[in-house]
């Protein structure tokens, strides 16, 4: 019996290790090849580089305009996420508490956006009418709008779990509507707001479609579009491509490690009964 359990243990651990390898290997290959010379990276293998070429990264940063695109991404993701936090803080609080006809409708109407596709052809027309094509303000507004639905859904679920008696007590104590939101509502919401901020920051950081449609000036490109463009130009220099990909993944990985709790908690909140 004990022998059988031991074999089972070894077997199941071998299986899970293989599974984990499938997920880590592709990234490891890219990382290793980022340090190789052009010739060596021409046949991608798991071999360690003959000579560690740290200058690849310098080349990539210079030629791929990585600094500029990094700060663009940071700007779009940061501003967009902050905007969403404020808009959803106010809207979510009202929509979750006040369930009379119109509010109910507005809630369902907005979360319909979780599923609906964005029509970029006509959105382009609206952007042109508003003079927002190829502007940083335009792209931030789009990001804010398209990420509202899922954020509202998560915040709504959270607010529904805060007892309404808290609000009643505040009102009896003479709280006004604005004070209720600012002094009672938002502080109670702060954990879910951190989640919303992190999730939206990453969603915007990772997006590629919107700049592809709405930003044609390379000076305004975020990292995703810059790396895509770099890939197109340097497709036969795999060491540089890998170095560029590595540098682009790095910020996201750092955020992931730092904000793991919020990310995993946030994605679960959407699905496992918010």
């Amino acid at each position: 019996m004990r022998a059988r359990k031991l074999t089972a243990g070894i077997l199941i651990n071998a299986v899970t290790c293989c599974v984990s390898l499938v997920f880590i290997l592709p990234l490891l290959v890219v990382l290793l090849n980022a340090f190789k010379s052009k010739a060596e990276s021409n046949t991608m293998t798991l071999k360690l580089p003959a000579e560690w070429m740290f200058e690849n990264f310098q080349t990539v940063v210079e030629r791929g305009k990585l600094f500029l695109s990094f700060f663009n991404s940071l700007f779009y993701a940061g501003t967009g996420a902050v905007l969403i936090v404020f808009l959803i803080g106010a809207a979510g609080f009202v929509l979750a508490r006040n369930r009379s006809g119109i509010h109910r409708f507005v809630y369902y109407f907005i979360i319909l956006g979780i599923a609906l596709p964005i029509n970029n052809v006509t959105l382009m027309k609206i952007m042109k009418l508003l003079g927002l094509v190829n502007t940083q303000a335009g792209i931030i507004l789009i990001y804010t709008a398209i990420n509202l639905p899922i954020s509202l859904f998560i915040v709504f679920g959270f607010i529904r779990n805060i007892p309404v008696e808290v609000d009643e007590a505040a009102i009896i104590d003479g709280c006004t509507a604005r004070q209720l939101l600012l002094k009672i509502g938002l502080p109670l919401l702060s954990p879910v707001m951190v989640t919303i901020f992190v999730l939206n920051f990453m969603a915007i950081w990772n997006d590629f479609t919107m700049p592809l449609y709405y930003l044609n000036n390379s000076g305004k490109w975020p990292m995703t579009l810059a790396v895509y463009n770099f890939f197109g130009i340097f497709e036969n220099q795999w060491n540089l491509v890998c170095a560029d990909i590595t540098l682009t993944i790095l910020p996201v990985l750092i955020i992931f490690v730092l904000a793991q709790k919020y990310i995993v908690g946030g994605v679960s909140a959407g699905a496992v009964k918010g």
Partner: peptide, 8 residues
């Protein structure tokens, strides 16, 4: 930025 483009 979302619904109007869809309907349009």
């Amino acid at each position: 930025f979302f619904f109007l483009p869809g309907v349009l």
